[in-house]
């Protein structure tokens, strides 16, 4: 394998170990990008890429990015779920690079869900007699 420098990996390891003493290892935010066949075909890899680049650019250490399979709403792909540790998860639909960047800014960093792109918002109303 071409050189991934062992020294670089060791440096990351040492730096992270010193940080782990300071925090409890809990992540503040979990981002899950749906990576089923439907998601991949609709552009989920691009969405993942935007989140990955923004996490690296901001240098945040409390956001974890992961992926999952098809959620059964193939026509709404690409989808992602953002879960803040103290809030219920929000499922976003029909994403693209721009929407992902806005979600990262406003929800992941700012703590406020982007209702415009969420799967449902007030889906039922109570009829007033």
């Amino acid at each position: 394998m071409a050189k991934i420098s062992i020294d670089d990996l060791k440096k990351i390891k040492e730096r992270e170990r010193s940080k782990m003493v300071l925090r409890d290892g809990e992540f503040r935010v979990k981002i899950t990008v749906h990576m089923g066949t439907c998601g991949i075909a609709a552009g989920a890899r691009d969405v993942m890429s935007v989140f990955r680049d923004l996490i690296a650019a901001k240098g945040t250490h409390d956001v974890i990015l992961t992926n999952s399979g098809c959620a059964g709403l193939c026509s709404k792909e690409p989808m992602a779920t953002v879960e803040l540790s103290d809030q219920p998860p929000v499922k976003y639909v029909l994403l693209d690079r721009e929407k992902a960047a806005r979600i990262f800014e406003e929800h992941v960093m700012g703590g406020k869900a982007v209702e415009d792109y969420a799967l449902a918002r007030g889906s039922e109303t109570t009829a007033s007699g």
């Binding site: 394998m1 991934i4 062992i6 990996l9 992270e16 690296a56 240098g59």
Partner: peptide, 26 residues
């Protein structure tokens, strides 16, 4: 070209493979 994450994991020990700096190196 060969990328083998087992070699990387071996050096990282408990640091997760998806740490942003590690994915940056990869």
């Amino acid at each position: 070209y060969v990328l083998d994450t087992r070699e990387i994991r071996c050096e990282l020990e408990e640091i997760p493979m998806n740490h942003p700096e590690v994915t940056g190196l990869i």
